[in-house]
Nucleic acid binder design. Structure first.
Lengths: 168, 168
DNA sequence: TAATATTTTCAATAAGTTTTGAAAATTCAG
DNA sequence: CTGAATTTTCAAAACTTATTGAAAATATTA
């Protein structure tokens, strides 16, 4: 397979993949394109390669910068802005985990804490089922939370070396 | 907070949560409702409690059964079908991990394998960047794959006991 | 400073996804 | 078997989300 086709397929698949993870298709595609590009690209490069509008590129690039997955790059002698993706894939995954944890897991744990405080007789089977379910999810979430904190702080070497002993 | 309100809020939040994970809002809401219900419910119960149409309930229940998160329950003397959610939340999370791994991670790894075989001079910086990125993602994916396999097979006791020693 | 290039915004529109509801199919009791 | 209850299907409608593109804002050069 030729490089151009391989890139196209990678970008398309990464985009489809993203949609299963609550990430907008174009954002994932732009990210994929920048990941496999050796040099930084301009908005026009991205517009052209992905066949999308300027506004679309602009908004999604900003979102990627927000997630710290993409950086603005100054190219001396060039007036346009260039963009480049963080290439260390372990760092990328840590950035994504960190952001999603903050946006999703943390608020969910806060809510579950409140819901446990439901009024009524804890012996009543309907109350009991509710409290048990909510508590169970909370315990699971807290374990996930701890685990993700460790992963976020780990580097690849530690991760593969130390953690993977457990996961033989 | 009263049980009825707490349930409503749980169902609504779980639904919103689901949309960040590529899961349709109603499917997540039905799942949430069944999780906190002490007894199995019929399609009519769910229609009434969530204010949604019969067709909608039917399609989403089928999807939940597909994921093995919900079971049809026969209630003796009743003509209608009843539905009940798997209540062990650790088992639930393992079922979800298993299914998403199969549907998403496994195909992605297969694709990455093909893309590594791109034609051309591996010394060329554009080829190199592509191969390096794809290989890096593949390595990450393989570690995740192994780790998830262990988690899928683990029970809560092992998980909390043994894994959490690593994650002090 | 003015002229020009570049980036950003956002209302309108398009595309994609979910939901409805009524008709068709199936199941079940008598 | 018959008829009522129940479940399933799926085309059309409603809703949600993503995209466009042109105008406004900003930055850069001379």
């Amino acid at each position: 397979m030729k490089l151009t086709d391989a890139k196209l397929q990678f970008v398309a698949s990464w985009g489809a993949f993203g949609t299963h993870w609550g990430i907008n298709r174009t954002m994932a595609q732009i990210h994929a394109l920048l990941l496999v590009s050796a040099d930084p690209l301009t908005q026009d490069d991205i517009m052209e390669q992905l066949n999308i509008s300027r506004g679309n590129v602009n908004m999604n690039i900003r979102e990627l910068i927000d997630w710290a997955l993409v950086d603005r790059v100054i190219v001396p002698g060039e007036r346009k802005e260039f963009f480049s993706a963080e290439k260390d894939i372990w760092k990328v995954s840590r950035l994504i985990i960190k952001e999603r944890k903050k946006r999703e897991l943390d608020p969910m744990l806060k809510l579950l804490d409140q819901l446990k405080e439901v009024e009524g007789d804890k012996k009543d089977k309907h109350i009991k089922q509710f409290v048990d379910t909510v508590s169970g999810i909370k315990r699971l979430g807290e374990q996930a939370d701890k685990m993700l904190d460790v992963v976020i702080k780990a580097d690849e070497h530690w991760f593969v070396g130390s953690l993977m002993k457990v996961f033989k």
